[in-house]
Design a protein around this nucleic acid. Structure first.
Length: 286
DNA sequence: ATGGCAGTTCCTAACTGA
């Protein structure tokens, strides 16, 4: 019901079957779209996903490198700023109801100043609403930015709650969350209790977001640790697989049920001049 | 304990990231 049924057809004019409709949604923090453009183009040619959610584009909308991405068949929806943050949705079909920031859903008063940083873009593909997020990093536990991160997550919870109440679509909330929710999401969780991305208050804040009714697509298929989506550029962290799983797809139950795989593609992380994050792809079938 | 590396701009120094 969340995908268009493509066609009913018959085998030997007897058995009507319905063709399955597949859909792939990927998320990738590219750490500057201008620096990573060729890698993104080549990755999309090898992995023609329906929607790619980008974070940390680091460019104002007027300077976003559109043409090469449009040339390979993607519609672009972008919300960027100078130097920092910035999110984008790339879709093979036009998206409906595209919105940037919290204000279109929460109103300007509740959104406050949180939309000054470009971290939220959402749109509707078929009956699936995709929310693409770049959650604040938080610097260090106890810092002013850490407090901002916690307050931002509180606003996010209200935003998602409102989205689900207004229009109960199938919801895919994905992006760079800058939080490893569980110890198995970190290469070595020992001594990380006071570490940014692993502190109890951050995890609790994210859990409260998920409590609106979202589940981790990756953990439907993979329970063990040692699967990561981000590796520090320093100290050869990638070659030693000292990583963190901080890029996620969180799904409402209807969509969670339809998920058939969720995989991290580490191959772009091996390239020269890589992003420090790897793309993560979830696949659905109805 | 500290810094390691990378991207951007206020560009050869300072900032942010995670």
């Amino acid at each position: 019901m969340y995908f268009r049924r493509v066609a009913n057809c018959c085998i030997n004019d007897q058995l009507p079957i319905t063709k399955l409709r597949m859909m792939k949604i990927a998320t990738w923090n590219v750490n500057s779209i201008r620096t990573r453009l060729l890698q993104v183009v080549e990755w999309l040619q090898d992995n023609p996903v329906d929607v790619l959610c980008l974070q940390e584009t680091k460019v104002v909308d007027a300077d976003f490198p559109r043409s090469q991405l449009e040339a390979i068949g993607y519609h672009l929806y972008i919300s960027g700023q100078k130097s920092y943050n910035g999110v984008a949705l790339l879709s093979r079909t036009p998206l409906a109801e595209v919105s940037m920031g919290f204000a279109p859903v929460l109103g300007v008063e509740k959104a406050g100043d949180f939309d000054e940083q470009k971290r939220v873009i959402a749109g509707l593909v078929g009956d699936v609403r995709i929310v693409n997020l770049y959650v604040p990093n938080g610097a260090s536990v106890g810092s002013e930015k850490y407090d901002y991160k916690l307050r931002w997550l509180s606003v996010l919870r209200e935003y998602l709650q409102a989205l689900m109440e207004k229009q109960p679509n199938a919801l895919c909330v994905c992006g760079d969350f800058n939080i490893a929710l569980e110890d198995r999401d970190i290469y070595d969780p020992k001594g990380k209790e006071n570490h940014i991305m692993a502190s109890p208050a951050e995890r609790q804040a994210l859990q409260e977001v998920l409590d609106v009714g979202l589940a981790d697509a990756f953990r439907k298929f993979t329970t063990e640790g040692d699967h990561f989506s981000w590796w520090d550029y320093r100290t050869n962290a990638f070659s030693r697989n000292r990583g963190w799983r901080i890029d996620h797809h969180y799904l409402t139950p209807n969509l969670y049920q339809q998920a058939t795989s969720c995989k991290i593609d580490i191959s772009p992380r091996k390239l020269p001049q890589p992003s420090d994050h790897a793309p993560v792809i979830v696949e659905f079938s109805n």
